[in-house]
Design a protein around this nucleic acid. Structure first.
Length: 520
RNA sequence: GGCCCCAUCGUCUAAUCCGGUUAGGACACCGGGUUUUCAUCCCGGCAAUAGGGGUUCAAAUCCCCUUGGGGUCACCA
């Protein structure tokens, strides 16, 4: 058995698509599961843009999720270079071999000619395949065309009357009739290779054992198989994974349909949350980072463990009940035969539930370290944060407990960072808890002296002090505690009341209550 | 349109390959409990084999058709 070698070969688009990430993950998992190698190559045969700018976000996504690669971009390896744009000689050599063997031919057909042929075929309702007019040319004509400088591409000669069989590891046996396959262009006039050709040359050169890719490539596969064959390669095994669909649909998740997704109920929450959070940390809104991109989740403060867990469960399962899986568990158990054939819609709700689980596994120190950058970026605290700030955030995070679902949630608790006079009140809650009850103001007023004297000013003492107060006043805890929360935090929800008081400290609590009472 | 792929709760899926389960789990949702709020957590509930034909003692599972969805038909990847 040859070693398992898989690859992911994105075209440099400037961002990492969540669906592509899932494909990459499956490749990585299959390599790791088998103790093989994973290769990261860049398919940039058709790009003239700034490569570094376009590749950066892709590498960033891999690093964030800790998907390491054994060969490829930046790390190098024995099968480089790992940019198709730098592999010209390999393609030229392979192309020459095909020409020499009569498996490829120079084609002088103009785009107009081809369009006309296609139109004619359509008019007659017969499937169009390239007509190979250039094969009929005499040597003299050929020379004349060349002398005229007429552009000439190289086409692969598809053998006729063949049934091309793909034994796909996920989809099973799939057959194609070679008579229906048009001769594909494999080299442009300028000697640059086309994808279907370059990928074959590169996969063979890198000794890729398994090509795991999205199912939209399934119909390219017969061509690639035939080219492998013509070049004398043993083709890799293919596994076509279903595409990742938009939430609640069966349609391929696509960046082009972004505006439509804004109205998708599940996606809408992600967009809205992005619009709320991202500007605070200087990243613009969801115009720049959207939930189709991996970077959105990174910037919002999702956990790699949650992302991996969610992505792995999209089209794959371990058994009939296991949902929560560590990276290691997934590596240990991942097999291609358990990949499902039907497309799977990304489920933001389910991602969130994995996130809640994996967040719960973190220590306070880990959460603090991850939350601090949000607080500094939003300028809630100084950058770099002093020791006292770190200590305070530690106490806040402890009090917040699992209320922080993604790290950027820490920004919801601005009441612990703003000056007393800048405290914002939730008006609805203010009405309900302070204005409307007839005893709220009176109780708050009286409770000030309790706060002044309670010693020490910590959650436990505050709790017993409040209970004593309630007893003395012959009232119920519910009569004051809600009003108190609004008075000191401005909000109807948050950490435990006594934690809030302790966190804020005596002075700020008293100042905020006074300010609230003045407001009535 | 041609070719190809796919089809189980609202969603992600298990059982399908090798026919026999009260068709299981999770998320979401609904109800209840815990809790000073919110969040968490616990308990319970709702909810599916696209349709039609075969084959068989027995079909979600095998075969055919229909319908629906999707992918692809480039000098994109």
């Amino acid at each position: 058995m040859p070693p398992v070698r898989t690859r992911f070969a994105p075209s440099p688009t400037g961002y990492m698509h969540i669906g592509g990430m899932r494909t990459a993950l499956f490749n990585w998992l299959w390599a790791r599961h088998n103790g093989g190698q994973f290769i990261l190559r860049i398919d940039d045969t058709d790009r003239q843009r700034n490569i570094n700018e376009a590749v950066g976000p892709i590498l960033r996504a891999f690093r964030w999720l800790e998907l390491d690669w054994d060969e490829g971009v930046e790390v190098g390896g024995p099968h480089g270079p790992y940019f198709q744009s730098q592999r010209g000689e390999f393609y030229e050599k392979a192309a020459q071999r095909l020409v020499d063997d009569g498996r490829a031919y120079h084609c002088f057909s103009t785009p107009e000619e081809i369009a006309a042929d296609r139109a004619a075929a359509e008019a007659e309702k017969r499937p169009y395949v390239h007509l190979r007019r250039s094969l009929e040319l005499s040597d003299a004509q050929r020379e004349q065309y060349r002398a005229e400088g007429r552009p000439c591409v190289l086409r692969f000669l598809i053998p006729r009357d063949r049934t091309v069989v793909i034994d796909d590891l996920i989809r099973g046996r799939v057959e194609f009739d070679s008579n229906l396959i048009s001769d594909p262009v494999i080299m442009r006039a300028d000697q640059s290779p086309l994808y279907n050709f370059a990928t074959v040359v590169d996969d063979a050169h890198a000794e890729i054992s398994h090509v795991i890719r999205a199912e939209e490539h399934l119909s390219n596969t017969p061509v690639q198989l035939l080219i492998h064959e013509a070049l004398g390669h043993t083709p890799p095994q293919f596994a076509h994974v279903p595409f990742v669909a938009a939430p609640g649909t069966k349609e391929k998740l696509s960046k082009r349909k972004l505006e439509k997704y804004r109205n998708n109920p599940q996606f809408k929450r992600l967009f809205d949350r992005g619009d709320e959070i991202l500007p605070k940390i200087g990243l613009g809104g969801s115009d720049g980072l959207d939930p189709v991109m991996v970077e959105y989740y990174e910037r919002m403060g999702y956990l790699p463990a949650a992302m991996i867990n969610a992505l792995a469960r999209l089209g794959w399962s371990l058994d009939d009940k296991t949902e929560i899986m560590s990276r290691q568990t997934i590596v240990d158990n991942f097999t291609l035969d358990r990949v499902i054939k039907a497309p799977a819609g990304l489920d933001p709700d389910k991602l969130q539930s994995y996130q809640v689980h994996w967040m719960g596994e973190l220590s306070v120190a880990e959460k603090v370290n991850a939350c601090l950058p949000y607080l500094t970026a939003a300028e809630y605290v100084a950058d770099p944060p002093g020791e006292d700030v770190q200590e305070f955030v530690g106490r806040l995070v402890t009090a917040l407990d699992d209320r922080i679902k993604v790290f950027s949630d820490i920004l919801d608790y601005d009441e612990f960072f703003v000056a007393d006079e800048d405290l914002q009140y939730d008006e609805k809650a203010y009405q309900k808890r302070i204005t409307k009850p007839d005893d709220a103001v009176e109780l708050l007023t009286k409770f000030q002296s309790t706060l002044e004297t309670v010693e020490p000013f910590d959650a436990a003492s505050l709790e017993s002090a409040l209970k004593q107060f309630v007893e003395d006043q012959e009232t119920k805890i519910g009569r004051i505690i809600h009003a108190l929360r609004i008075a000191v935090t401005g909000k109807p929800a948050g950490p435990g009341m006594f934690d809030c008081l302790e966190l804020l400290g005596r002075e700020r609590c008293l100042s905020r209550i006074a300010q609230t009472l003045k407001r009535v």
